[in-house]
Design a protein around this nucleic acid. Structure first.
Lengths: 144, 144
DNA sequence: CATTGATTATCAGTCTTACTGACGATCAGG
DNA sequence: CCTGATCGTCAGTAAGACTGATAATCAATG
């Protein structure tokens, strides 16, 4: 409260970028013990759904490029968290499934990420924190 | 409202990252006619202040690495928007000043960026838009 | 004055992330 | 069978930001 700093005059782009960078750092620290990063956790979360997904279906849902997804699944497979197998109904597709280790990691890493999220939003009240995420969803929901 | 999409379950990191990416795209379009990008506009804004700044002073205020600032000022100088001259009091430093064209660009580009910001926040009410920026400032203000 | 240590701007190299473009394999429709 | 489209893959590229090193300069000290 002593120095007003450059924040007072900061433009929206600066605020959004640095809020993201700040959160990414917190998240990185929280997830480091679980051998995954935030994107890998998001992939695991998607793949844990009820029906099996191909790489590109998962990629589309997450807004990840199809070529980026290759390297991402490569990494998860190297860590034995997921496995690829050809879709019997369409052999162009790879079905990507979580291994047992993948399911364990998903649970533990999700917990760690939730804590990092709460810590990051700690300066806001619980109500403001929840409404903050709602506002972000509103912004992303309008105008594709 | 028909499909709930992946947004409902999206994690904070996803929301922040994609909100930033969405805004960055809007900003890029708005600034393209003015020959600058968002970072360059931020640099111009800082340099337009009352007292002259060296490269590293400006970089520190903007959270930009000193080596990144070299290329950034190179680009602005190539476009004749800023000029370097040695600080007479400390010849290690470069004072970076806006040219007349730089001042014109600053005014026009700021206006365009403000419009992009309003457009991006359009889905929120005016009150919610303002409080959204306040929340971001709160998050960045707590715990550097 | 000479020396030492710190600071400024710069450059070269590296790393991450994500993209484009191309390719073979496979599928669906005529 | 062909043709066109889709899926996964790979090679190459580009942006952005970092590390480490260097020359010039400054401040301070003996």
């Amino acid at each position: 409260m002593s120095t007003e700093g450059p924040l007072a005059s900061a433009r929206l782009g600066y605020l959004l970028k640095h809020a993201y960078l700040r959160y990414a750092e917190r998240s990185r620290e929280a997830l480091a013990p679980h051998q995954v990063d935030g994107r890998e956790l998001a992939v695991l979360t998607r793949l844990a759904g009820p029906e099996p997904l191909s790489q590109q279906e998962a990629a589309r849902q997450l807004g990840i490029d199809r070529t980026t997804m290759v390297a991402l699944v490569d990494g998860l497979e190297r860590k034995r968290l997921v496995g690829r197998r050809p879709d019997p109904g369409d052999r162009r597709k790879n079905i990507v499934e979580l291994t047992a280790a993948g399911r364990t990691t998903l649970i533990d890493a999700t917990e760690a990420a939730d804590r990092a999220e709460q810590q990051f939003l700690g300066a806001l009240g619980p109500a403001a924190a929840s409404s903050f995420k709602d506002v972000l969803r509103t912004l992303l929901g309008s105008g594709p």
